[in-house]
């Protein structure tokens, strides 16, 4: 059982790395907490649901469609909200309020449009078979989600370290003002990074059915809280640190479920408190954030 728990925890953790990475990217670039992050995950889930049930589109193909949809959505949201926020005296605090409002609006629109029902893409979409690691059997959908998560992490890494846009994004993450002075089109790069954050959230949503059950309009709030715990655990502002945060969360929740199941919902909060007390910069963060 120990072996099974570790393996399940790693796969579950990689998925939760995917859940959190978009939130961390947006925070890193704009120093704002997107409290509607979970709602964008929910939107990704609903997109996958409708694509599957209306057109029979496989969730893997839905990734490509969601990239296009959320790229435009991200750019639109960015230019509507963020430049104004950044001009205010306290953009971090105002962003809390704004994105909280946005979260409520998204949830309300989905409820009004589609109702409150839970919706699922069947787990048999990827076949009924299971796969085995060290003699432990797991659903095939878990393998696919794990591979997608790893590919996404590689893509994010490649973006940051092997593309001009990625260099510019990292420069903005280091200092927005200096980037502006050095001639980087900060708004354009930030808008693109914001869109990538939403695309990552939507990909997490597409695969939510296989890891966290049915999708429903109010699922976003809980996912935002978990994502926040994960990114604080890894390192706030460092997207790649989210993978560490996700893995720790996944392993910890699987061990809690195995050995102390009734307390497992306390876990995100306990991890958050522990990291704030003992390593506030996050497990792989170097300094305490001063922003």
């Amino acid at each position: 059982m120990f072996e099974y728990t570790v393996l399940a925890g790693i796969m579950y953790g990689l998925y939760f790395g995917l859940v959190g990475i978009g939130l961390n990217l947006i925070f890193g670039v704009m120093r704002m907490i997107n409290l509607a992050h979970g709602d964008f995950i929910m939107l990704g889930a609903f997109l996958a649901y409708w694509l599957f049930h209306l057109f029979g589109i496989n969730p893997l193909i839905a990734i490509a469609i969601s990239c296009v949809v959320f790229l435009f959505l991200g750019i639109a949201f960015y230019y509507i909200f963020v430049p104004r926020l950044l001009q205010s005296k306290d953009p971090e605090m105002l962003s809390f309020i704004l994105f909280f409002g946005l979260s409520q609006v998204i949830e309300a629109i989905i409820i009004l449009s589609f109702g409150n029902n839970q919706r699922s893409v069947p787990s048999s979409t990827f076949g009924h078979s299971t796969f085995s690691i060290l003699g432990n059997r797991f659903p095939i959908s878990w393998l696919i989600v794990t591979i997608v998560a790893i590919l996404v992490f590689i893509a994010v890494y490649w973006y940051f370290y092997h593309t001009k846009l990625g260099y510019a994004t990292r420069a903005i993450m280091a200092s927005r003002d200096e980037s502006l002075v050095s001639g980087i089109n900060v708004n354009r790069v930030s808008a693109f990074a914001f869109s990538i954050g939403l695309i990552l959230a939507s990909i997490a949503g597409i695969f939510s059915f296989f890891m966290i059950g049915a999708a429903y309009p109010s699922m976003g709030t809980n996912l935002t809280v978990i994502s926040f715990a994960i990114i604080v655990l890894g390192a706030l502002g460092n997207p790649m640190g989210t993978i560490i945060g996700g893995l720790i969360y996944g392993l910890a929740i699987m061990f809690m479920q195995t050995y102390l199941s009734s307390w497992s919902n306390l876990l995100p909060y306990l991890l958050l408190i522990a990291i704030m007390l003992f390593k506030p910069e996050g497990l792989i963060g170097k300094t305490v954030r001063s922003a």
Binding site: Y4, T5, A8, Y12, F138, P139, W142, M211, I212, G213, N222, M254, Q257, T258, S261, S262, S264, N265
Partner: peptide
């Protein structure tokens, strides 16, 4: 398990 449990694989 907590009422918010959404993954029963390990359980």
């Amino acid at each position: 398990v907590p009422s918010s449990t959404s993954n029963y694989a390990v359980l």
